[in-house]
Design a protein around this nucleic acid. Structure first.
Lengths: 131, 131
DNA sequence: ATAGAAACAATAACGATTACTGATTTTATT
DNA sequence: AATAAAATCAGTAATCGTTATTGTTTCTAT
């Protein structure tokens, strides 16, 4: 692990994610940051997103359906993903620790974390489709 | 939903997945089926994998780290994914129904299913890295 | 046997991500 | 403050997984 050197771009990416309640993709981060850094590169965004998530400062959400999403909220929570519009909502479940214990009983290795996504149709899609 | 017409390729793909205990990617399916169908196309494999998972006859596993994996085992189970070698192991957790109920309490929509993956280092990787 | 529809093989196209290159910024040292 | 080494950058090309297209083959119902 090489020493991290400060970079304005990385700080901006981190800050951007912290202030968002949704879960942007790399491309969204890129597009939004171009206002502050008109010639930031998409490669820079990807590199720093990977860096930050390796450091555990942001979370990576594999939402399935194309691109990965990123989450600056590190408090323990899960996601409800709408199967129609693919929006990602935060939800909170207790008992995650118990889940990990349960899994450890039969897992062929040391269980370190879990990822728990729920799927369904969100209220917004449910109401609009009734029309 | 158009009527499904029989195809030898699709049956072979289904059968292949049923007889595997690991969780092959589309590319693995493709490579292995080429022994039986020397000029099967990768597009055919993808199309039928999508078809079968839409029909609910196989499961799609978003393992993160590149390609998607497919699982012919429909019995309720979860996966333990090694963060080092990315192998996917089956594990079984009860209480999934309870989880869905919990999620429904705060979810902004109708919860239909969940995907629960556990992450860690598998025993095989743990022992080999000690060397 | 035959005609229409669905599935096919082959290949091109696509979107997301990574790798490469030479220029710029940061940091440590004078 | 000037400078040198190293990390990071912007820009771009390349890669990878997947999907779409096209003209041919295979099913299935008549």
């Amino acid at each position: 692990m090489p020493a991290l050197k400060y970079s304005r771009q990385r700080e901006a990416i981190r800050h951007f994610l912290m202030t968002r309640r949704d879960h942007p993709t790399a491309d969204t981060v890129y597009t939004c940051l171009r206002e502050e850094f008109p010639n930031i590169s998409l490669g820079t965004v990807y590199r720093n997103l990977t860096l930050l998530s390796d450091l555990g400062e942001i979370r990576r959400i594999s939402s399935d359906s194309g691109a990965e999403h990123f989450d600056g909220d590190l408090t323990p929570h899960q996601h409800f993903i709408c199967s129609r519009c693919h929006r990602i909502y935060d939800i909170r479940i207790d008992r995650i620790a118990t889940l990990l214990d349960d899994a450890q009983k039969t897992a062929p290795g040391k269980v370190e974390s879990c990822r728990l996504n729920f799927y369904g149709i969100c209220e917004q899609c449910a109401t609009t489709s009734k029309a």
